[in-house]
Design a protein around this nucleic acid. Structure first.
Lengths: 208, 208
DNA sequence: TAGATTGTTAATCGATTAACAATC
DNA sequence: TAGATTGTTAATCGATTAACAATC
């Protein structure tokens, strides 16, 4: 059950999605090859990933789906519910608040924040919006481990610091800003401009 | 000027962003080490990436910023304007329509589509919204190479096929659906649930 | 000239792919 | 038993890191 590399980690949720579906259909076992085919991946690669989850398969039968689902849910954090706060209730922030996929991943956004007074005291998709000044105290009081950052880039560093002051442990950064935070705070970037650049590059490459 | 790997490709937009800023500040040259420090990357890695752009640096001086910016813009597709259509004007779709970062990347979303009649004939962030039935004809008539998919997962495959029928060359897929399209159509997934799973896994790992 | 920085070649590392033995 | 599929060990591949020569 060694650590998963970045690449492997990205595949686990894909396995989970397909296996959950199969579980609902009542299938009991799945071979690495079948799962690989469903996802268009290399069978050997899938088998190795499954082996690394620690779940044991049986030759001629495959891996027990229920056990795989349980273990993958644990590994991807979907097994235990986590709370988060979201700062910046602009277009992207509002979209994320209403995204049903997060709930399935075990994530509950318990509070949102915004600098604009007219957006505060609203309730968006079931999440109450508070003034930006309340971030630190709220994060601290609720013991929220995850902060979602959807503020304008120029405000990102300041808001990140407010979260850190409240004891946040991870920040999901949707802004292009590079955040300076203590080492123990995990930062994950989600930069659409970067993704778009990669896509446009690949598109260009094909045209040649 | 060999091909860039996936990892390297993700770094190019980061270089570009910093170098553009330095260019505005009037700086003429930058060494790989300085750029690496600004981004928190390994200096040798940065130097190698820069070398691969084909731009020649001079010892003791560094790389010419203007040339790097021009070449990076070309490599990331920001140099030439590209058009796109967007299908699915829900929360996420509307957020993307209003995202100013795309424009900076040379992307212009020329038309949006939605299945709901009440959303059609609207103009959102400057982009007109048409009925979903018009996708194929519109893509074909305007010769749009890129389709952005922000429809519900269960409708993704059908809409993708409409785009393909119109001659689309790449699809940026924001749904969790796995699309079946001809080999010559490039598909890039942008799956927030996957990113969240990776983040939650890493957070869990640290708590141990 | 001396020293900083590039350019290039070699070593390391991690992930993927291949080969094959173990087992139900 | 025979054959499919797992589990494991080795080979390959690509990306990163290190070492060092070239050069302004």
């Amino acid at each position: 059950m060694a650590a998963f590399g970045t690449k492997a980690l990205h595949r686990l949720p894909l396995y989970l999605r397909v296996l959950r579906e199969w579980e609902r259909e009542g299938r009991g076992h799945a071979s690495g090859a079948v799962l690989a085919a469903a996802l268009g991946l290399d069978p050997i690669l899938v088998r190795k990933d499954l082996a690394r989850t620690g779940v044991r398969g049986t030759p001629r039968v495959g891996f027990p789906i229920a056990e795989l689902v349980a273990e993958l849910e644990r590994l991807t954090g979907a097994a235990s519910e986590q709370t988060a706060v979201l700062a910046g209730v602009g277009r992207l922030g509002s979209a994320l608040l209403g995204y049903p996929g997060f709930r399935k991943q075990g994530l509950r956004i318990v509070a949102a924040f915004d600098a604009a007074p007219e957006r505060c005291n609203l309730v968006l998709s079931g999440t109450p919006v508070f003034p930006a000044g309340a971030i630190t105290e709220m994060v601290m009081r609720l013991g929220v481990p995850l902060g979602i950052l959807t503020v304008p880039a120029e405000r990102a560093q300041r808001v990140a610091e407010q979260m850190v002051a409240g004891g946040i442990r991870a920040i999901w950064n949707f802004t292009p800003a590079r955040l300076e935070v203590p080492d123990e705070v995990l930062v994950q970037r989600e930069d659409l401009a970067v993704s778009l650049a990669v896509l446009l590059h690949r598109l260009q490459e094909r045209s040649v």
